[in-house]
Each structure stands twice: as structure tokens, then as C-alpha cells.
Simulated scan of single mutants.
Amino acid sequence: MLKTVCHLAREAGNAITKVYDKEIPLNLQHKKNHSIVTAADIAAHKIIAAGLRALTPEIPILSEEAPLSWEARKTWKQYWLVDPLDGTKEFIQRNGEFTVNIALIDQGQPILGVIYAPILSIMYCATKKEAWKEYQGHHTKIHVQELHPPIIVVSRSHIDSELTRYLHTIGEHKIIAMGSSLKFCMIAEGKAQIYPRHGSTNIWDTGAGHAIAVAAGAAVHDWQGKELDYTPKKSYLNQGFCVSVIPKENLLKVV
């Protein structure tokens, strides 16, 4: 199943690249919630949704580009969670830091995750206990790494007062700014140790990265110390969270 999902992510990435390379018009629009959608988002969604339906017709799909009502979702025990193009701002700014995200959720927890960065030609994937990176034909098992001082990876688009306060109180550290769910992957492959996020995110922004980070040995928890939960809720939002290889008791002391 993981191999097939990776293939779907790569196909979706190829469709995104055609828009990125201007072979297909961007067709930028604004949704009702003021977020941006492009032809790349829609093309990737259609490829992934069709592929997942063929692979597992019994498992429902929740995609950013096809949100479903609470009534339709409230009894789900297992479902696919998809962000066809995570990092639309990075896509428009043409910095390459955007991804295709696919996760399988079971009993509220992500048990499979795939993140593909088409412009960077990097694939990250995970089952419940192991995570891998594929780059330039090499398929490598990845795991977290502790460093002192820690490297903190932060969002390019969401640096706010809470994050600034957190960084001032955490002690000696280094910072890397990164777009999209690649921040989870930086933790998973040992290139960073902490990813703090104080603002809310949608569940499709975090599901695949959560699976990969945890499989590589990291923890993904909210600022009260509870692991993020993807059990269907009326809202699609996660509250703030932290991905880290440092014991959460040490991190929560400075919140």
C-alpha cells in the first residue's frame, strides 16, 4: 500500500510541476475562507482521490479540496487525509518548498504518511514504526537526532509574537525557516530538533508529517502535552503543537 501511495504522490507532483513550469495556466482563485487555490491543487486532488478510491474503495477520503460535512464524517474510524498541495504560498513564490501530503488515519492516529516535494525531487514516507527518505535513487531509513544547541525549524509564513517569545525563552539554539510540511521531515531526518507552532493549522497540514515524524522517533503534541488527535471533529483545525526529539516536559516549561 505504501508503495502505491508514494506512486500517487509522485503522479500528483508531476501534475503540479506542469502548472509550476507554466505548461498549464495557474488559474489562481480565492476560496470562501480566503485561502488560495490553483489549477495545481485541483489537478493533484483529482489524481490522488481517484487513485485512493481504486486502492481502498472502502476507506473514505478527506481532502482540502473536497471537505465533507460533519454528518458525513462523524462515524469514521479510518480515513485518508490529503493535502494535494501543501504550501500554496511557496508554490506561488516559486521557492520549491511545497509538498503533496497523504496520510492514513486509523482510530484518530496517522499510521501511514507520504510527503513528496516535486521540485526538490524528495519523497518521505512512513509506516507506523519506520520512516524513509528517497532522493536521487537512494532509499534511506531516517531517524531523529539530538543536537545541542538544538536547531529549531520555523514556518516562513507564520512568525508571530508567541513564537518570538518562545524562541527568547528556550535558550541557545539555531533557526532554519522552511515552508510546508517539510518542517516535520527536517525533524524526522535529524536536521532539526524542534518545530514549534503556536497558531492553528488544518488537520490535512499535519497528518502525513505527524506519521513520518513519529515513525522516525519524534513526538508530536499540543502545548498541554497531549498527542495530536485526528478523530473526526466538527472543526478541521488543530490548535498549536510542537514536534520535537526533546522530552516534552522540558519544552513545556518555557511555554
Score class of each variant (00 low, 15 high):
V100P: 11
L167R: 06
D160I: 07
S69M: 10
L81N: 06
L81G: 04
S161H: 15
Q136T: 10
H168T: 12
W80Q: 07
W70Y: 14
V153H: 00
K89G: 02
H148F: 14
G171V: 11
I175Q: 03
E97I: 03
E172T: 03
G171N: 02
L163Y: 08
G113E: 07
S181K: 06
K128G: 04
T169H: 13
A131E: 00
R156G: 01
I115R: 02
Y79S: 03
I102E: 07
R165T: 12
V114R: 07
E71M: 10
K174G: 04
D86A: 04
E65I: 11
I111A: 02
S161F: 13
Q93E: 14
K74G: 11
K141M: 13
P118R: 07
G137N: 08
I122L: 11
E130L: 05
A126S: 15
H173C: 08
I175T: 03
E71F: 12
P67I: 15
S121Q: 14
I151K: 10
E172K: 08
R165V: 13
H173R: 05
K133H: 05
I119P: 01
I105H: 02
T88V: 03
P149S: 11
R73L: 11
M178A: 02
I105A: 06
P149G: 07
I176C: 02
H143G: 07
H168A: 15
D106N: 14
P67A: 11
D106K: 14
P110L: 05
I92L: 14
A66K: 12
I102P: 05
Q136V: 12
G87Q: 06
V144S: 07
T140A: 05
Q145D: 11
L68G: 09
E130Q: 14
Q93S: 13
L68T: 06
I122A: 12
N101G: 09
E146D: 10
H173W: 00
G137R: 04
Q78R: 15
Y135L: 05
L120R: 04
T164Q: 15
I111M: 01
T88W: 00
I170A: 01
I115T: 11
Y166C: 09
E65Y: 15
K74F: 02
I175S: 01
S69I: 08
E172F: 00
I102D: 01
Q78T: 15
Q78I: 13
Y166G: 00
K89Q: 09
C125A: 11
D160K: 07
Y124I: 03
K77Y: 01
E172H: 09
R165A: 15
E172Q: 08
S121W: 01
M123D: 07
Y124W: 12
Y116N: 07
L147S: 10
T140F: 07
L120H: 12
L167W: 04
P84C: 08
I159Q: 10
K89T: 15
Q93H: 14
G108D: 12
C125R: 00
W76L: 08
I170Q: 01
W70L: 05
E172P: 05
V82C: 14
I152A: 01
D106M: 12
A177P: 00
K77V: 04
N95V: 13
T88L: 04
M178H: 01
L85Q: 05
H158V: 10
H173G: 10
I119V: 13
E130S: 13
G113W: 03
W70H: 13
S63T: 06
I105D: 01
